[in-house]
Amino acid sequence: MEQNPYLPITMKLTKNLVETEDRNINTFTLEFLNKQDEENFKYMPGQFAELSAFGYGEAPFGIATSPTEPGILKFSVAKVGCVSNALHLMEEGTMVGVRGPMGNYYPVEEFKGKNLVIIGGGFAFTTLRALAVYMLDPAHRGDYGDITVIYGARNPGLLLYKEELAAWENNPNINLVTTIDRPAEGWTKHVGFIPSITEQVAPSSVNTYAVVCGPPAMIKFTLPVLEKLNFPPERIYTSLEMRMKCGLGICGRCNIGTEYVCKDGPVFSMAQLKDLPSEY
């Protein structure tokens, strides 16, 4: 029989880290139990997996690590429902279930030879982090032009991956712009919403792709800015969320028109989305 796509592998939760000051987002580090599992789990930045908290259920989350970081997977998850709450409360050392990798990924082949601007807001930064880490890897960095990351959160405490952001500040291979919504004590970087900051700091659209991920309001107001900067819809990518169960394009709930977000997405270009019903 073929591999059963409903059967999760078990991975060990080695770190359950409180990621944000409001304690609403934790980053889980999961370790592969054996080489075979790891070899079977070949993934790319932008893909997601179904995590099982045994006894509670299963839910889909974007993979926050890049395939250039072997041995582990990381997921940064907001406390929202039954499964995410159970994961937040889980003791390190506990086994969790993982099905995947699922979905498509950011078109890193298409991006080759181009500049990239990655625009993220709030906790939608997870697979964008994976993308940036993938491109910054010495094996891949030469494939791409300038990499700009514009990342915002409501306040400094809500930014994910603070240590990594600090390292990127001093990394000549990446141009990091961070912003918060309102001034805060001790904050010396940008203040303002993502769309207006993007307008101020975005690189030229010539030979450049944009990847945008964040809350719907942020996306809604950032897209017109990118259009104004002459980014064509074919060169703007985003990643969508939907309620999902199977993750295999079968259970029927995550479609937008003919496309299943789990199987045909979650990554879509704005050109693709323009041809689909606005039902997401």
């Binding site: 409903y6 299963e58 029927g252």
Partner: peptide, 17 residues
């Protein structure tokens, strides 16, 4: 029609999906 839900049935330490 083929849409389905996947959920958890749990009793103490054992369960099924």
């Amino acid at each position: 029609c083929h849409c389905f839900d996947i959920s958890e049935e749990v009793c103490q330490n054992s369960g099924s999906r």
